[in-house]
Write a protein that binds this DNA or RNA. Sequence first.
DNA 1: AATGAATGAGAGTTCATTCAT
DNA 2: GATGAATGAACTCTCATTCAT
Lengths: 215, 215, 215, 215
Amino acid sequence: MERRLTPRGAKRRHDLITFATARFAANGYHPTSVAEIVDGLGVGKGVFYWYFSSKDELLGEILRGAQRSLRAAQQEAIGTEPNPVRRIELGIRASLRWSENHRDLYTLVQFAATDERFAPLVSRGAQVAVRDTMRQVAEAVEEGRVRATDPEVCAHAIIGLTTYLASEFIHRRARPAGEVADATVDFVLHGLLAGSASELAGSGTGQATEAPGRR
Amino acid sequence: MERRLTPRGAKRRHDLITFATARFAANGYHPTSVAEIVDGLGVGKGVFYWYFSSKDELLGEILRGAQRSLRAAQQEAIGTEPNPVRRIELGIRASLRWSENHRDLYTLVQFAATDERFAPLVSRGAQVAVRDTMRQVAEAVEEGRVRATDPEVCAHAIIGLTTYLASEFIHRRARPAGEVADATVDFVLHGLLAGSASELAGSGTGQATEAPGRR
Amino acid sequence: MERRLTPRGAKRRHDLITFATARFAANGYHPTSVAEIVDGLGVGKGVFYWYFSSKDELLGEILRGAQRSLRAAQQEAIGTEPNPVRRIELGIRASLRWSENHRDLYTLVQFAATDERFAPLVSRGAQVAVRDTMRQVAEAVEEGRVRATDPEVCAHAIIGLTTYLASEFIHRRARPAGEVADATVDFVLHGLLAGSASELAGSGTGQATEAPGRR
Amino acid sequence: MERRLTPRGAKRRHDLITFATARFAANGYHPTSVAEIVDGLGVGKGVFYWYFSSKDELLGEILRGAQRSLRAAQQEAIGTEPNPVRRIELGIRASLRWSENHRDLYTLVQFAATDERFAPLVSRGAQVAVRDTMRQVAEAVEEGRVRATDPEVCAHAIIGLTTYLASEFIHRRARPAGEVADATVDFVLHGLLAGSASELAGSGTGQATEAPGRR
DNA sequence: AATGAATGAGAGTTCATTCAT
DNA sequence: GATGAATGAACTCTCATTCAT
């Protein structure tokens, strides 16, 4: 692949990606045939294989593009903000806004994570996000702004929460991203309990009472 | 369907479900053919269609079974515990333990949620879990044990967090469920911030596009 | 592959091989599609792939069968004949008779030898034939029945001649195998020259670019 | 077609033929795509169809060129040699030398002979060679230089032997053409038997004991 | 209950050929 | 003359499903 494209060619390629993303998200990747995609654009089958060497490769391209785009949105949102806690918040808000504007991509990434052929690709993208977030959590811990916790677990918790709430409230119920972000940030920062004294000190199942990762 | 099964028939059916679950989780639902399943069990194709009317129906059965099994595990764990916060914790721990013992089912549910034909089924199961959790959050709020928040959002946050951390730490990295549960419960209850005074008081209201009060 | 076949299945498989051999020989291997074969037999496409894992595999089967069959015919013809020269003759006659009865296979083998994917298979079969013939030539030389020559070259010459004359006279012109065999055996045994004294003594050494001794 | 070509055009056309011949010989005619050829030369598809009206036509050109070239080599080698036996020998030697220098063409001709669309073309070329050789055999018989045999069968025997030994020893084992020619000429002239008295007089299968073709 | 065999629509992909630029 | 793009029929092969035995 890697073809030098004319402007017209670049547009075709872009159209294919856009249309395929929509169909994959709506119908599922496997149930959507190449024929369906090219028919939808009113072009011949050969066009598809002129721009992509296979259906799998197309999905790969879509996933890579999604990750690039999300990361760019996050970094642009964070800008030069010095406070790491605030950076986390800005990252969450950017992710949710991005999620709102790219519902299809979200669905596709979710699917890709469940297919052994694409899971590694998704994993790699997730690792980048985790590393970004971890750095901020670690910094915030160092500065004493947040409780001492395992930054890796925290990073996953933040990303997982954001991801899940996006799926539930933005995609399924079409709530505005801003509102969802408020709730997410609130939960991330304060957790569930009222007051400062843990009512459940000593709870647990007899296993470690501290968070894992701290040795 | 609905067939009166002999003991031998019941075993056959169970074998089919078990084997298919493993293959679906490992290879993906669509890429796994009925032939692969029956060959793996050393039986003819007719057997499959004797017990299930279609491949889709089999997946439906698997998903319904998974939800029944998870809910049973949660309810057994909660038992008669009166404290709603403690009930939430017990539910989280039960879910993670279940997740540890049923990795394949977890993967399958994740996939099913991305396919428009199965998503409704998954949704219905998720709604049950959300309603269960919501009831407990609402009760905890009423009793003043947790901050006043939208119980629905909270329920989703709890479930989302649990789900995601299960996937990352139990499935991908094979950490023990107990450890992961400790961290999850900790995060759910206390959030991220240090101390009782919110450093970010004022955040979480409106879109907060201006930097919130930083010291 | 390797399937336990019922009698009905064995017949189907045999029909596929027979029909495909005829089409491959008439139209060429590549130009003959699987669809053409199954349509010709009035069965569904799946039937083909029930019995053969691919079109290539089918050709392989055909070629292997041809080699087995030809070799069996030769060995049966030679029987226990003690005279090696006579054994060579019997082999030639058997080959030509076989050729007469299996024109399609001959054409197919010729093609297969020109395709890099099948050439090794053909080569292997040819090696067996060469080794058989070589043994007889060597024995004949030892017994002083034929001129001292390189048995390997002779073996190839015999096989090549037989092959070629079969193609030309039996396949293209439909002459009876017996007649062709007489001529082939005659040429193989006596060569071209009249009398016993070589008119061209001295030739056959070096590149002989100058005219050799002519009267 | 028939196009007046600029020198640059003539070179392009020649390059296409050369490259295509190599790919066809290496990969097979059908499996080699036009795209592969033009990509290999770094030109666009249009170039191909500017010089040739189709892929089949290109193969036809290659085959015709091969026959022209081989015949020219033979005629140049024979020159004005008056002795017909010697002419046969010179022809064999020229053919093998040509074969050594044009392995790809040899492979291609072999293939073409097996495809019903190209077989007539190959046939026509072969007929020319047979007629040339026949004339020489007939003359040699008339002059009493060789045994009285059917000149047509002899011609085919000579050509078949030469062809086959070229394929086996020159192409597959890369032996020098001179050596192979010595063996071929020797076999053609003397056959296999030692001495002048046929040890096998009277052998045969009860069918004609004389060569076929004589009525 | 169960099997091997069969179906045939439809999948992804290729490729000779054409055409606008 | 030459290119990149496009065409679309045809290809090999898959697979959920059905059926005779």
